[in-house]
Design a protein around this nucleic acid. Sequence first.
DNA 1: ATGGCGAATGCAATTCGA
Length: 262
Amino acid sequence: MKIATWNINSIRTRKQQVLDWLSRHEIEVLCLQETRVMDQDFPKKPFEELGYHVSVYGQKSYNGVAIISRLPLEEIACGFTPIVGEQIAGSFDEQKRVISAIVNKIRIVNLYVPNGSSVGSDKYDYKLKWFQVLNQYLKTLLAESDTEICLCGDLNVAPDDRDIYDPTGKENHIMASPPERDAIAQIKSLGFQDAFRKFNSERGQYSWWDYRTHAFSRNRGWRIDHHFLTEKLYQKAVNCWIDIVPRQQQRPSDHTPVIVEC
DNA sequence: ATGGCGAATGCAATTCGA
């Protein structure tokens, strides 16, 4: 089955592009980030008419995640709280960035990791603290069941220098600073592996390009959208790739879809 | 170093993203 992740930067603006893309590909599960609408405003109907089930967790203007699936979504969990409890989740669910469900016996965890603004800022602190809550969340999921996990989404971190068009100054750059990469390493140490790197070790393949400075036409991008898989699922995976076609279209999202097949 | 673009809000100009 193919599981895709795509930060679409507004479902209102990108609805038709997402529908077209789903119509042209055999995608079983699509994880969306930055839907940027409240749940009642998400256009579920056209996706349901294509034969998908839709589960959303959104808010006005910012953030927002959704899972779109051919098979029914089971054991849906919105936010950190249902998994880790209020004590650990604190106020982190005020921003709608986490949705999870079981599809075809695989637990899908769809994440929109905070961007962090710039190294040393308040938002950067928030990002690092958010990662600590995520760590507890994943530990709990792993301890509670032997279900394989596909963690995917806009992780807003480039795991290594191959994932950045120009790594100069990365120590102080958001999405590449050592504490952010440590957070990614911590997730991996729980038992996750980067699906994309199972099949491709070349540099220069990206999932996000800045709207400004003609970044896309010059391929000045970053690989920040990922699938991290638990061991058995990682072994099962047969391919993982980036589809740059949606980024080439008129009025695109600044991200493009990444797909894993397993 | 700064700003570049695009979306949301809401109707002009500001905030935010990465």
